[in-house]
Amino acid sequence: MVKKIISVGAILLLALMAMDEALATTVTTTVTTTTIDEEENQQCQREIQTRSFPNCETYLKLEFDRADATIMLPYAKKHYKRRCCRNELSGIDKQCVCFAVRTMMKNMMDSGRLSAEDMEAMLELAGDLPTVCNLRKYPC
């Protein structure tokens, strides 16, 4: 009985050591990824700093809150979607599209056009926008 307990203890110790090594590797990988993301963010920031996304914003609002948003708008939802995809997102480098969407959402919140509660709920819709526009295979 004592041998079985020692064997189980040894196995658990080996498993913990293996997990510890895997976690250390993950941390190193994350640090490397963060550095790459920061460089990409700087490049993307330069690319979109002069752009605005009014049609994308309107389209997202229509998708999110259909009842309130449609009352005062002169065009149908597909008009804003088409202009968002063709005029606002299509000219952006494929690697920067998600950065552009995140920046758009942040600007909407910072300017008061979107509350924190709505922002949280709308983020998933915004992440799907590049897929809806056929600019990416997968959402942001």
Rank of each mutant, 00 (worst) to 15 (best):
R86T: 01
R86W: 08
R86D: 06
N87G: 09
N87P: 04
N87E: 05
E88F: 06
E88R: 01
L89Q: 08
L89R: 07
L89Y: 02
S90F: 11
S90A: 15
S90V: 04
S90N: 13
G91W: 13
G91M: 07
G91N: 13
G91Y: 15
G91P: 09
D93N: 14
D93L: 05
D93A: 13
D93R: 01
D93M: 02
D93K: 04
D93P: 03
D93T: 13
D93C: 02
K94M: 10
K94G: 09
K94C: 05
K94I: 14
K94Q: 14
K94S: 15
Q95Y: 09
Q95S: 12
Q95P: 00
Q95G: 07
Q95A: 14
Q95N: 15
Q95R: 15
C96Y: 12
C96L: 12
C96R: 12
V97R: 04
V97L: 10
V97N: 03
V97C: 06
V97P: 04
C98Q: 12
C98A: 11
C98I: 12
C98V: 11
C98E: 09
C98W: 11
C98F: 08
C98R: 13
C98M: 07
F99K: 08
A100I: 07
A100M: 14
A100G: 07
V101G: 10
V101M: 07
V101S: 11
R102G: 08
R102P: 02
R102V: 06
R102K: 13
T103P: 05
T103W: 05
T103L: 07
T103R: 07
T103K: 11
T103E: 15
T103N: 12
T103C: 05
T103G: 02
M104E: 12
M104V: 07
M105L: 13
M105D: 03
M105G: 10
M105Q: 10
M105V: 02
M105H: 04
K106I: 14
K106V: 14
K106C: 02
K106P: 04
K106Q: 15
K106E: 14
N107T: 03
N107P: 05
N107C: 00
N107F: 00
N107L: 01
N107W: 00
M108S: 01
M108R: 08
M108I: 02
M108F: 01
M108T: 01
M108E: 01
M108P: 02
M109Q: 15
M109T: 09
M109P: 00
M109Y: 02
M109E: 15
D110K: 00
D110W: 00
D110L: 01
D110S: 03
D110R: 00
G112M: 13
G112S: 13
G112A: 14
R113A: 09
R113N: 09
R113H: 03
R113D: 06
R113Q: 14
R113S: 04
R113G: 03
R113M: 09
R113T: 00
L114S: 01
L114R: 10
L114W: 05
S115Y: 10
S115P: 14
S115N: 14
S115K: 10
S115H: 12
A116T: 06
A116R: 14
A116W: 07
A116D: 12
D118C: 03
D118E: 13
D118S: 09
D118V: 06
D118N: 07
D118L: 08
D118F: 07
M119A: 05
M119S: 02
M119Y: 06
E120A: 01
E120Q: 06
E120K: 00
E120V: 01
A121V: 03
A121T: 00
A121K: 05
